[in-house]
Design a protein around this nucleic acid. Structure first.
Length: 536
RNA sequence: CGCGGGAUAGAGCAGUUGGCAGCUCGCCAGGCCCAUAACCUGGAGGUCGCCGGUUCGAGUCCGGCUCCCGCAACCA
């Protein structure tokens, strides 16, 4: 990953409905990764947005009884934006594919692909599946029906369309997967993509007649045709950072460091999208690296889907969870923690409020919250409300006859954390912080038992000062380890430790990682319980 | 031969490069009392779906088999 910048994206969402917990999952994951990079003072650009050129939106507007499509799109885009804001999503940009900047970039991109000779006009008669929004070849069909949407009649479409000659890039794509295996993440998806490209990746229609498609971006130079959804949608990742409108900005941010997507759209992102860029780059120097090769996104990471209490998310079953409702019922940091901790990133998982409440009580309340609470309470009680005066270096040593590895153990935790962030495995990061040997939260709770500061104080106040300092300092470091996932909780801990989160953050991660960030004598602010028991 | 996911302790799940089977919850017995009835220790509980193979060694790799889940529409 490019250390100088981090450009992360979520898919752009259809606005035919409000967000549910699934789209929130993608967005929260992206947010946590964005925050992790910002905390490391890596210039970060976090993009999300809405896909507004889809036929589906038209249908949704009609269903909602709204005549004015643009008004419908505006109001729905606002719903999405507001939801993300309320969930504390720290997006830097929100792109709508009906925006002027997007249209201009798409136009430029189209012309580049055209110039490269990869767009041709042809009359085809093909089966079009409205569900997939794509044409089906005979080999795609099962009993003459779309295998994904067997109950939806295929439309026989015979018209003159523009085609993108994706097949010209088959070999280059296969080379890409071979030379840069990290391009497709997680690993388990690589074979899937490779075999898809080898067997099923073909030229595809990228426009429809305007008279049949009443929304979408007109084909440059041919108003009788409009670009259809996927071809225009993918380009949002470029137009948001200035492609077609601001070359300087584009050079700063492109290529994307990470496209976060659901597993359903991995083919578009790992095959079609790089092929499109390879083509456009041949005719547009802005898309070329210094060696002339196409500037492709660095990685595409597909996360899994989850069920709700073992059942597929389905609006007809009424189990589509509204993330805003969750945020009302639970502290939202807890929901973020749950989603990112519970499901191994990249795998499918299950979402249940029962599990959420279990994790909340156990991981957050009993382990993290209780540790912070007891350690600060003891320090305040025995040391006049302050961080105990002691030899900071000595307090960083591992302690004999205990499991505690001290500063060294925490440093180990940090280096693991960096690896997990790089790999987008925040679930593993959290697991380490909670459950590893040496300096985890569990180890810290054990240290309290093994040293018993609440007794030790009477016999040996100096030793007690060392133990409590070590624990307070560990809490400070835990706060920064979990900050990308639980920003509010982290700030709360830092404040209770008598520090200002903003001032601390400005020091940079290397400083925050160092043992001894907590200055002896600092006034503690024993505060609110971090994770109050839930009333069910 | 449609595609994909899965089968590991009572429940829910981890197990990146093959090296004594782990985590959370629950259960039993103890300890502690600083703390959110929280924390700590010990324990019961597994033929890692089945059969074969590779290997000094397989939950992990290879082959075969059985069973389960998702794949109309809404839908990451």
């Amino acid at each position: 990953m490019d250390k100088r910048k981090f450009y992360i994206t979520t898919p752009i969402y259809y606005v035919n409905d409000k967000p549910h917990v699934g789209s929130a999952y993608t967005t929260i994951a992206a947010d946590a990764l964005a925050r992790a990079h910002r905390l490391r003072q890596i210039p970060t650009y976090f993009l999300t947005g809405t896909d507004e050129n889809s036929q589906k939106n038209l249908e949704a507007a009609a269903k909602a009884g709204v005549d004015d499509l643009q008004a419908y799109l505006d109001s729905m885009a606002e719903v999405w934006k507001r939801t993300w804001r309320e969930l504390g999503i720290s997006f830097d940009d929100f792109i709508r594919t009906t925006e002027e900047r997007h249209h201009r970039g798409v136009e430029r991109f189209w012309r580049a692909v055209e110039k490269s000779g990869d767009i041709n006009k042809a009359t085809y008669e093909r089966e079009y599946c409205v569900g997939c929004e794509e044409f089906k070849t005979p080999t795609d069909l099962l009993d003459g029906k779309c295998p994904l949407h067997p109950n939806r009649p295929l439309e026989k479409v015979s018209e003159e369309n523009y085609f993108f000659r994706a097949s010209n890039y088959k070999q280059q794509l296969l080379d890409l997967y071979r030379d840069k295996p990290e391009f497709v993440q997680p690993q388990s998806r690589q074979n899937e993509i490779r075999s898809y490209v080898e067997s099923a990746f073909d030229d595809l229609s990228i426009s429809r007649e305007s008279k049949k498609l009443s929304c979408g971006i007109p084909v440059p130079g041919d108003d009788s045709q409009r670009i259809y959804v996927w071809f225009d949608a993918l380009i949002n990742y470029m137009t948001a950072v200035g492609y077609g409108t601001d070359d300087e900005m584009f050079r700063k941010w492109w290529p994307a460091s990470l496209h976060l997507v659901g597993k359903d759209i991995i083919k578009f992102h790992c095959a079609l999208w790089p092929a499109m860029i390879m083509s456009a780059a041949k005719s547009d120097g802005l898309l070329q690296a210094e060696d002339g090769s196409a500037l492709l996104p660095e990685r595409v990471y597909a996360h899994g889907f989850f069920t709700i209490d073992g059942q597929k998310i389905s609006k007809s079953l009424g189990n589509a969870v509204d993330p805003l409702d969750l945020a009302k019922k639970y502290p939202f940091d807890a929901v973020r923690y749950f989603l990112l901790r519970e499901i191994p990133f990249g795998e499918d998982g299950d979402f249940s409020t029962k599990r959420l409440e279990e994790r909340y009580a156990s991981d957050l309340g009993n382990r993290l919250g209780n540790l912070v609470n007891r350690v600060i309470a003891m320090s305040a009680k025995y040391f006049d409300g302050k961080v105990p005066q002691t030899d900071v270096e000595a307090a960083g040593e591992g302690m004999d006859d205990t499991v505690w590895d001290g500063a060294e153990g925490l440093a180990g935790l940090w280096s693991e954390a960096e690896k997990h962030i790089e790999a987008a495995r925040l679930d593993l990061l959290l697991d380490q912080v909670w459950n590893s040997d040496g300096a985890s939260l569990t180890a810290a709770n054990k240290l309290v038992e093994q040293t018993q500061p609440f007794k030790l104080f009477k016999e040996d106040p100096e030793k007690t000062a060392i133990v409590l300092y070590a624990l307070l300092e560990a809490c400070r470091q835990y706060a920064w380890m979990v900050e990308p996932i639980m920003p509010n909780v982290a700030n709360g801990i830092i404040r209770q430790l008598g520090q200002d989160p903003d001032v601390e953050k400005a020091k940079g991660i290397e400083e925050l990682k160092k043992w001894g960030g907590l200055v002896p004598g600092t006034e503690l602010h024993p505060g609110e319980v971090l994770f109050p028991r839930l009333i069910s």
